[in-house]
Amino acid sequence: MTAKTILSRPVYGTLSPQPGKHHLFIADAEGAAAILDMANSAPAGFFADAHIMFVPGATGTKYVEPLKKLQPAQFYEGPSIASALPRLRQTLATAHMGLRVYLSGTEGLIGQAMQAALEAGIDHTSIQTEQRGSLARRVQCVHCKGITENVTTQPATCSHCGLLLLVRDHYSRRIAAFQGVCINAEDPTENPPKEEIFR
């Protein structure tokens, strides 16, 4: 579980079956285990109205068959989050009220899928989330606005403009990223060492 730090830092829960007509699951890597755990408490036939989108990442084939065994109405396996997003956006664009969204896995997956759901008019408080696996962060550089993926260190170097960034807990759902602010702006000769803390 992620520790609660400041109020803009997302708090993730545990997936649970919601009342609804259709159920859309988006997961990456260990996030599949969250779906499988939830399936144990789901009512019979729950997945007959479900669509599972899964990006296995480093977990390879480990979770693919167990997820298929849930017999969702639709199953999709994709090589990356980026490759899954067009399909997700199209699914949301044609969906009706009564669709429930469940996101599980890394913060990057949860954040980007939620961003697509928000743009489709879904309120973030109605989306189920569960964080599993890596705590690597997506970080937006407040100076150049570029987003650096998979940040594990504090401070971190912006992959776009090269500034050394303090990675804050301040998080934007709209951008799906944490905020990075130049750590040595007041004295550019300061060069604090990087520590690996987001794993």
Binding site: L7, V142, R168, S172, R173, Q179
Partner: peptide, 22 residues
């Protein structure tokens, strides 16, 4: 503070970095 980053946040979220007051 950055409007570009904070736009869309609720009252508690955009004030999250303020110490002591919460």
């Amino acid at each position: 503070w950055s409007l570009d980053f904070d736009i869309g946040m609720n009252f508690f979220e955009w004030h999250a970095p303020v110490p002591l007051a919460h």
